[in-house]
């Protein structure tokens, strides 16, 4: 059985907000390591990989691996019934036909209990090898979100060029063109806002902005984001949390 108590229930609410528009149904794979999820969007262009490590919960107990098949829209509706400061406890027994959720307020005088029906999901699990990327950009997650939103005014896609000087996001469309360049600035006073680049070689890649904008729904989960890129392989956009991560993979756009 699974029992996982999350002191900051808001985290789970934010995680759901970050994935529910990209994927509709997914298995939460629970093991003694924690709760993991991997799912592709319907078009098989983007993939979400989520890990909530066991040490992010207190207590965490999972004596047998369980796959909890969840409709994410339904779960997100139930989570809207939890207060932002509530402690959330997830429970499922080994038959895994329902997920029990308990929300306790901080004064511990209001306890709400919900049960969500689970479903069998035959999900395709992809093996993603450890990859050394040609360019890794670490930057403010809020800045990344702003750039994607701004450039979406111009085009459906963005060209990302990374050199040792900086990273340039450019878009061209019917109404004109636009570009935002962030110079590498590891010495700025505000570490949170620094743009850092690790580069093996320059890269220039095109990606769909619609998906990138979708990924930025994870912005409330982390102040930093990393973009890992190599020619002709999927982009990895990673938001690291205190006890886990949310990773998005996006296939590059290629010439016809």
């Amino acid at each position: 059985m699974l029992e996982a108590r999350l002191q900051t229930g808001a985290l789970l609410k934010k995680v759901l907000e970050a994935i529910k528009e990209l994927i509709t149904d997914a298995n939460f794979d629970c093991s003694d390591n924690g709760i993991a999820l991997q799912a592709m969007d319907n078009s098989h262009v983007a993939l979400v990989a989520l890990l909530l490590r066991h040490d992010g919960f207190e207590p965490y107990r999972c004596d047998r691996s369980l796959a909890l098949g969840v409709n994410l829209v339904s779960l997100s509706k139930v989570l809207r019934c939890a207060g932002n400061d509530d402690i959330i406890t997830l429970k499922a027994d080994d038959t895994a036909d329902v997920l029990s959720l308990t929300f306790e307020n901080t004064d511990n005088d209001r306890i709400s209990e919900y049960e969500l029906k689970l479903m069998d999901i035959d999900s395709e699990h992809l093996g993603i090898p450890d990859t050394t990327y040609e360019a890794v950009v670490q930057m403010s997650s809020a800045e990344f979100a702003r750039i994607c939103k701004d450039l979406q005014v111009l085009s459906d896609s963005v060209q990302i060029d990374v050199t040792k000087e900086g990273v340039k996001f450019g878009a061209k469309g019917e109404l004109g063109s636009g570009a935002v360049t962030l110079k590498q600035n590891g010495n700025v006073d505000k570490e949170e806002e620094a743009t850092l680049i690790e580069l093996q070689q320059n890269v220039s890649l095109n990606f769909s902005l619609k998906y990138l904008v979708n990924f930025t729904k994870a912005t409330p989960l982390a102040s930093r984001v990393s973009l890992s890129m190599s020619s002709e392989v999927p982009l990895l956009v990673e938001y690291k949390m205190e006890a886990g991560y949310i990773r998005y993979y996006l296939a590059p756009k290629i010439g016809e």
Binding site: M40, S43, V45, L126, G127, P234, Y249, I254
Partner: peptide, 14 residues
């Protein structure tokens, strides 16, 4: 125009 790749081309089934 560019076309969008499919992730399955890059990553095989686990």
């Amino acid at each position: 125009a560019a076309v969008q790749d499919n992730l399955r081309i890059f990553y095989g089934r686990d």
